[in-house]
């Protein structure tokens, strides 16, 4: 992992302008931005970690915890919104006892908000590790969670 990061940092010209692409590439390889990663980027780029964390939290795309075994991507695009994705999100957060961007303490589920995933006909829709669940209702949230939880045992 260390080597990977070094490569990423070498490849990208080390200037503050490249901070976001560097963070994106680290997240792509490691799944999230760890304390260690942020510290190393800070050292290489001569940037305080608070600045890096400030930039990273500005954007929805960055995570600061590893993803769970089952990574739930919840669509908050227009069509899904119109058909009630906000209440679906609330329900997931309630059932999993985490906020979007977080991972459950047992490491099984993580929740991420994404913009349109191009399946508007299926709205409101989520994708769990690439598996789509369409036309969700509040009641179906618990079932979906349980089905994956049972699988993980």
């Amino acid at each position: 992992m260390l080597q990977n990061k070094a490569k990423i940092l070498d490849k990208n010209q080390i200037s503050r302008d490249n901070l976001i692409p560097i963070l994106q590439e680290i997240q792509e390889r490691e799944g999230f931005l760890s304390k260690k990663a942020i510290t190393e980027v800070g050292q290489k780029m001569n940037l305080p970690t608070s600045k890096i964390y400030g930039v990273a939290t500005f954007y929805n795309q960055f995570r600061f915890e590893p993803t769970g075994k089952y990574h739930i991507q919840l669509c908050r695009g227009t069509a899904c919104h119109v058909l009630g994705s906000a209440t679906i999100l609330d329900e997931f957060e309630k059932q999993l006892k985490i906020k979007a961007g977080q991972t459950t303490s047992d490491g099984i589920f993580s929740l991420e908000i994404v913009a349109c995933i191009g399946a508007c006909g299926l709205a409101p829709v989520i994708s769990v590790n690439g598996e789509f669940h369409a036309k969700l209702e509040i009641n179906s949230v618990k079932e979906i969670i349980n089905s994956y939880r049972n699988k993980s045992i």
Binding site: I38, P48, S50, K51, Y53, F58
Partner: peptide, 28 residues
């Protein structure tokens, strides 16, 4: 030249905090 704190998150969720929004005692 310490930069212990910065703006984190955005919009109406913006707060001023340390890296990983932890206690000031763990920051620089």
């Amino acid at each position: 030249e310490v930069s212990a704190i910065d703006f984190i998150n955005r919009g109406n969720k913006t707060v001023i905090g340390t890296t990983f929004n932890e206690g000031l005692n763990t920051s620089s």
